[in-house]
Design a protein around this nucleic acid. Structure first.
Lengths: 260, 260
DNA sequence: TGAGAGAATTAGACGAGTCTAACGGAAGTA
DNA sequence: TACTTCCGTTAGACTCGTCTAATTCTCTCA
């Protein structure tokens, strides 16, 4: 009923608005969906006519309640598919994104239900992104921040990684940086290079949180204990972590809810 | 690269040309894809420009080798998906068609390979339709004929049922007429009503053939032995059977390879 | 052989989604 | 306040896939 294209725009707006707060700019949408700004303007008019977004000309756009519901439905499809592909078709978590993008608009509600059922209604996908529930309420997600905003010496658990850049994902995978992994920040150098210890001796807190990703492909295990990894700023900024109890509360900017 | 729409036309032409032989008429394609004849004409021009069909104006259309390969690829996707949905997501064989139709254009080659692998490279889908191999050579399928063309008293095994009409499929499902089931034709009445015995005492031949569907949902089992079922002509004509050794060779018209 | 029926094609329009080029508004800076 | 720059919107065109209405072709049958 709504076209795939419309759904893609709504999904993009939802993610942008979760990351940076509403309203979102035409150009940021354009960049995310890979279209030109005039194209986006014209699509936003269409979406507005359908009651899915509200716009203030030259200012920005935000989703209506209805638009958000549609976006969450698509996101639920996407993330359930990612989880399913990783769990049942032997995909690694760095491979699932494109396949899920292609399928998310075309699965039925029945398919969604059955996939959710065989997965046991998972709370997060393999990248650590929260999967919206069947009620399509926006998932809340406190206390998650970019790795770049953790203080040196603090411990944290990887909450999620971006799902949009294959190379970056491969890099993180090799480094053992996967959702659910415990880390300690050893150093933050000039220009933002972050050095972490992967799986420091387990005394700093609980490695498994309530929204654990389930160690989908088994790449990083306790045998990685104590490895040191240095991450360029660009990559560290896209890694979200959940501080372990007792960690210093640092910079309190927007905590962000990246990924798609 | 080719659009979904083009793939749908090619698939339709393939099936029609398998059923009735080339060339296929514009109006039969129109009926199958649910579009008007002028729309079909214009799409056929496009497909011809792409080297996927050959046409003789006012006469008919047939696939080129390249067009056939594309059609077989789509058909392989469709039927693998049907098999997968039935086997791993608990769909009944009467439910899988629409879901497979929606997904067949959007799965990657990687997905195709993985699905085929976990299924163990099945030869047929849950409706009994042959699944083209990875080589995309046209599956050959001798000795299969409509149920209406079996002589009274002969035994046969259900080879396949149409996958396109939900009501009809439910009817057959309830009647225990599923791919792999043995039957004996008891009577063919005026107006084509066919009466069969489902699972006659097993001495007439092998119930499992080389291309067995694998009894996907377990609906019809040997406990149905001896049930009599009468099928209206319209339904019986869409059920394809493979005669059991020793059966009379009857009408030798086109044997057909229905389904999608 | 010619008329009529039925099928296919041509003609022309339209909506969706996209683009480039040109214009206009918003916001900071001199 | 006026300039400048960046961003967003408007204008206008294009492609794709579709439709309806009108035309043309093919084939059969008298």
């Amino acid at each position: 009923m709504l076209s795939d294209v419309m759904e893609d725009y709504l999904k993009a707006i939802y993610v942008l608005q979760t990351e940076d707060g509403p309203p979102v700019s035409t150009s940021s949408i354009a960049e995310r969906v890979g279209k030109t700004p005039p194209t986006v303007t014209s699509m936003l008019e269409t979406l507005e006519e359908h009651g899915l977004v509200e716009r203030e000309k030259y200012k920005g756009t935000e989703l209506t309640a209805e638009g958000r519901t549609v976006a969450l439905e698509v996101l639920r499809h996407h993330r359930l598919l990612e989880a399913y592909l990783a769990e049942h078709l032997d995909y690694s978590w760095s491979e699932v994104h494109d396949e899920a993008d292609a399928l998310e608009h075309h699965i039925s509600e029945e398919f969604e239900r059955r996939v959710a059922a065989v997965l046991g209604d998972p709370a997060v996908d393999p990248h650590g992104d929260p999967i919206p529930g069947e009620d399509l309420e926006p998932p809340v997600d406190d206390d998650v921040r970019p790795l770049t905003e953790v203080a040196v010496g603090d411990r944290a658990v990887i909450a999620r990684v971006s799902d949009r850049d294959d190379e970056e994902l491969e890099y993180l995978d090799r480094a053992g940086i996967t959702p659910g992994t415990a880390i300690e920040v050893l150093d933050i150098a000039p220009f933002g290079m972050v050095t972490v210890e992967v799986n420091p001796e387990a005394d700093g807190g609980d490695t498994d949180t309530d929204t654990d990703a389930g160690d989908v492909d088994g790449t990083a295990t306790d045998s990685d204990a104590g490895r040191e990894q240095s991450l360029p700023e660009a990559i560290a900024a896209s890694v979200r972590v959940r501080p372990v109890d007792g960690a210093t509360d640092t910079v309190a900017t927007d905590a962000g809810v990246g990924g798609a």
